[in-house]
Design a protein around this nucleic acid. Structure first.
Length: 574
RNA sequence: CGGUGAUUGGCGCAGCUUGGUAGCGCACUUGGUUUGGGUCCAAGGGGUCGCAGGUUCAAAUCCUGCAUCACCGACCA
């Protein structure tokens, strides 16, 4: 490609509304332009990268036995009503009507469509297992789109769905997808980790996320410092403290804590560590037969945070988790939040494992401006359950049994699930088994955020001058930068010749044939992140040489014109 | 959804407090100049000041409503 015939569209100024580095650089490098909130147009350079990522994903999926399909983005409401997600999926699902006033949705994911397709096409166990995938645009009406294409509403995703008769077959495909994903991210040249995850709104049981590690990541991941255990923080089990519970030694007493509401206030006032305080949160219980919802008290150590996902999975707790209002709390405790505690409450009380390990601790006294000190389980709070309801924190023992927890941030770029029968059962997708009996299929689903990978790759690979693409996904592998080509026939001829040779060798070359000053060309090629550049100048031409520069390492070398193609090929495949 | 802020040539912004008919930088066009790290000089084109209504002799500026966009928040009692 010649710059004079290309749409480079680089800009010097950083748009004001770009927050993170990948967003800024994608705008500056002329990869994307914002059309509306969470919606982006891809310019040629952006498309080139997107296609390269896509192609690697496609190749690895094919290699792993998946077959490509293409499903509609606009989907009839009936399918979503049939699966039940028309009602459960709320605002994120964009709905609209056609000219006949029929309801449709813009596909945020394709479980319904694929399950419908498969139930029509597949009738016998002999056709299983089957793994179908597509690379397609999704639309999710995010409550807050941000970070450019990282959390956009419209985005490009690879989604695969597998169908099986039985768990063993599902596990086999799941494992194959797991290694296919590792291959994908290895080929992309990214620093990533597979982590244990919750399966969330899509449903199912076993699940892994693939995260690209980056400071700007939206997810926190818990790692063991000695084993290869890694789990999403919302999922990582916080173990009970080891050793015996300290022996109670104090009597229960009331202490005045005027205007001390938060844990840190109380700790400061009473001159104790916040680990000696237990905080009490109130959430709604599951509705009883009359449809009434009582409250449930969740008790956590003062330095810990509630893990909502863990809490809402507990029996008796309403799911999704709903916090009690101030009024509800006052009606129950006769005190406002800040002075409330579990002592004397006649409702279900769930203590976190760490909170349950406390003795002689401090809680709100259910009396405005007062706390109890010297509180002890059993003696003062007899009826309670113990559960893991907190977020794991750095330094906790790892749930795998080896080492301690380190927390890092990651960008979720892949997610694999074992769905089970959630959708196949709802849509009655089954086959005849060996006994000639109808049997519901078991499903798995496997997603890769293609457009998000592009942003994640930039987060991990950039410097002050711009993007530094890994070779595998660079929009161009080589930049040809001639010095004063328009004044020197010799330069023009050599550059033209190199361009022909490199292109013929199947290398993506960007030939900067603009009438620009050298500084402009250097700056642009660095900004868009071309990994290898060749500078053609008069002084080296006398020796039949050109200058090579590596974008990432800064390495410079002189190359003989005669061997440029093979030299470059070696540097690329490296 | 709640809070805060923004909206002025293609992009980034000033002007608004104190109303008087719009300006700067980048980009673009033309001519010259320069040519191994975002040249310099000169001339030029381009704006219903987000939309609607109101106040006024007069509104980018004041008032009201709406729209769009962004940031922060949406467990930590």
């Amino acid at each position: 490609m010649r710059t004079s015939q290309y749409l480079l569209s680089t800009v010097k100024e950083t748009p004001a509304d770009a927050e993170i580095i990948s967003h800024k650089l994608m705008l500056r490098a002329g990869m994307v332009r914002r059309l509306g909130s969470g919606m982006f147009s891809y310019l040629p350079t952006g498309v080139r990268v997107l296609r390269k990522v896509e192609q690697i994903v496609r190749e690895e999926m094919n290699k792993a036995g998946a077959i490509e399909v293409l499903l509609p983005m606009v989907q009839p409401a009936e399918l979503w009503q049939e699966s039940g997600r028309w009602d459960t999926m709320d605002a994120e699902l964009l709905r609209f009507k056609d000219r006949h006033q029929r309801d449709y949705v813009l596909g945020p994911t394709h479980e319904e469509v694929i399950t419908d397709l498969v139930r029509r096409e597949i009738t016998s166990y002999k056709q299983l297992p089957l793994n179908l995938y597509q690379i397609q645009t999704k639309f999710r009406d995010e409550r807050r789109p941000r970070f450019g294409v990282m959390r956009a509403r419209e985005f490009l995703m690879k989604d695969a769905y597998s169908f099986h008769l039985g768990q063993a077959s599902l596990q086999q495909t799941y494992d194959a997808m797991y290694s296919a994903y590792c291959n994908i991210f290895n080929r992309l040249g990214l620093d990533y980790r597979p982590v244990q995850a919750d399966s969330g709104a899509i449903g199912g049981s076993v699940s892994h996320e693939f995260h690209v590690l980056a400071e700007s990541g939206e997810d926190a991941i818990a790692f063991s410092d000695t084993s290869d255990y890694a789990a999403n923080i919302e999922m990582a089990e916080a173990l009970a403290p080891t050793g015996d519970k300290p022996t109670p030694s104090q009597a229960l007493r009331e202490v005045a804590t005027p205007s001390a509401g938060s844990v840190s206030d109380v700790a400061a006032l009473l001159q104790v560590a916040n680990t000696r305080i237990a905080k009490t949160l109130f959430v709604l219980a599951e509705a009883d037969e009359q449809g009434k919802q009582q409250l449930v008290a969740l008790v956590l150590r003062g330095d810990h945070e509630l893990n909502e996902l863990k809490a809402e999975k507990l029996a008796g707790v309403a799911s999704p988790l709903q916090f009690a209002t101030d009024e509800q709390i006052r009606a129950l405790c006769h005190a406002g939040p800040g002075s409330v505690g579990p002592v004397g409450l006649n409702i279900k009380i769930i203590a976190d494992r760490s909170a349950a390990h406390l003795a002689d601790f401090i809680v709100g006294a259910n009396k405005e401006g007062y706390h109890f000190n010297g509180v002890n389980w059993e003696r003062d709070i007899s009826d309670y359950q113990i559960a893991d309801i907190r977020n794991i924190v750095a330094g906790d023992p790892s749930p795998c049994g080896f080492g301690h927890i380190v927390i890092k941030r990651g960008i979720e770029v892949g997610h694999i699930f074992q769905l089970g029968e959630k959708y196949s059962k709802a849509l009655k997708a089954g086959v005849l088994n060996e006994e000639g009996k109808h049997q519901i299929m078991t499903m798995g689903c496997y997603g890769v955020g293609v457009s998000r990978i592009v942003a994640a790759a930039i987060e991990q690979n950039h410097d002050d001058n711009g993007i530094i693409w890994p070779d595998a996904i660079a929009p161009f592998q080589v930049a040809l930068i001639p010095m004063n080509m328009h004044k020197s026939v010799r330069i023009a001829e050599v550059t033209e010749q190199l361009y022909q040779q490199l292109t013929a060798a199947g290398i993506d070359v960007l030939f900067d044939d603009r009438r620009e000053r050298p500084g402009v060309m250097f700056a642009d090629m660095e900004l868009i992140g071309v990994p290898h550049s060749i500078v053609i100048g008069e002084r080296n031409l006398d020796n039949q040489q050109v200058e090579y520069k590596n974008r990432r390492s800064g390495e410079k070398a002189m190359l003989d014109i005669a061997s440029v193609v093979t030299d470059i090929q070696q540097k690329i495949t490296r």
